[in-house]
Computed example of a mutant assay.
Amino acid sequence: MRIIAPDDPSTLQIYTGYLFTTPNRPAPGQDVTHTFTGFFEAFAGTGAVAERILYGWLASISVIS
């Protein structure tokens, strides 16, 4: 949860994220990709518009062995 203005509850943004690794159980020396993805909910007062309150995001990094 991100609170932009502590005295104004309408400024809350709620983040939900998921972290996973591919392959799930890498063997020693095997290349691995870590992916972090999810969405956040922004309400009136946080810069969101009435037509859209959900915003998705994704980040990943590959570790080459």
Rank of each mutant, 00 (worst) to 15 (best):
M1V: 14
M1Y: 10
R2V: 14
R2W: 09
I3D: 12
A5T: 14
D8P: 01
D8V: 05
P9C: 04
P9A: 03
S10C: 03
T11D: 05
L12C: 03
Q13N: 00
Q13G: 01
Y15T: 11
Y15L: 10
Y15G: 06
T16R: 11
T16W: 04
G17C: 11
Y18G: 06
Y18T: 14
L19S: 03
F20P: 03
T21R: 06
P23H: 10
P23L: 08
P23K: 08
N24G: 10
P26N: 08
A27H: 08
A27T: 12
P28C: 11
V32K: 01
T33F: 02
T33M: 09
H34I: 14
T35N: 05
T35H: 02
F36W: 15
T37W: 00
G38D: 06
F39L: 07
F40I: 03
E41P: 01
A42Q: 08
A44V: 13
T46M: 01
G47P: 04
G47C: 02
A50H: 01
A50T: 04
E51A: 07
R52N: 12
R52D: 08
L54N: 13
L54Y: 14
L54Q: 11
Y55P: 08
G56C: 01
G56D: 08
G56Y: 02
L58A: 13
L58G: 10
A59H: 14
A59S: 15
S62R: 15
V63Q: 07
I64H: 09
